[in-house]
Design a protein around this nucleic acid. Sequence first.
DNA 1: CACTAGATTTTCT
DNA 2: GAAAATCTAGTGG
Length: 204
Amino acid sequence: MTVLPRRFYARTPVTVARDLIGKTLVRRLSRNKRLGGVIVETEAYGGKKDPASHAYIGRTQRNSVMFGEAGHAYVYFTYGMHYCLNFVTGKPGGEGAGAVLIRAIEPVLGVELMDKLRNVSDPRNLTNGPAKLCQALSIDLSLNGCDVTSETSEISVEDRPKAKKVMEICSSSRIGIKLAIDRKWRFFARGNRYVSAGANIEES
DNA sequence: CACTAGATTTTCT
DNA sequence: GAAAATCTAGTGG
C-alpha cells in the first residue's frame, strides 16, 4: 500500500487519467474513519488548449487551483447543487492547468457510512457518477486545493497491488460537454458495474 | 429499458 | 442574465 506521490500527477492529464483506473481513492475523515473505493472511470482535461476545460478561458477565481502545483484536489460546484472532484496534473513549467475528473468508483471502504450519506436503495447508484461519489465521500468546496500526496491528506489515492483486479481499460468521448467531443479522453474499466450510466461502450 | 423535464445557485460576461 | 465537466423522478414501451 502506497500513497501516490506528486511525480505520479506531474505528467500529462491523459496519462494520469489512464493510470488512475484501478487505483484506490481514499477519503480520510479522521484517524480511523476512512471512506473510499477503486477508481473505475476518469476524464482528462487538458488545460488552456482544451476547449472543454474550465481552464480554457484563463485563470479565474474558481479554477485557480488548476493553475497551481500538481497533486492537489480541484473541487468545483455546478448545476446549483453538485460537487465534482478533480486532481491537478502536469509539470510545473509545462502547459499547466491540466486536470483529471474522477467520474466513478467501486465502493470498498466504509460502505455503510457512504450508504447513509447517499440514502439510496440500489448500491449501484452509490458512486457511479462524479457528483454522486462526492456526496458519498463527503467532499465539498472546503477540500478545494488540498494536497493529496500525503498519508494524512483528507483525500489521497493509494496503489494497492493486492486489491488490483484484472481490468480492461477502454476510452471514449467525454460526457456532459459540447466542445471537443472528438477527443477520446474518458477512460473506464470495461464491464464494471460502477461505471456511470450511458457509458459502457466504445472502443479502446 | 429509453427518453424527457425539472431542480437549483454559483460563476463569469 | 445565461450557462453549467449532473442527478433524479417521471413517463411510456
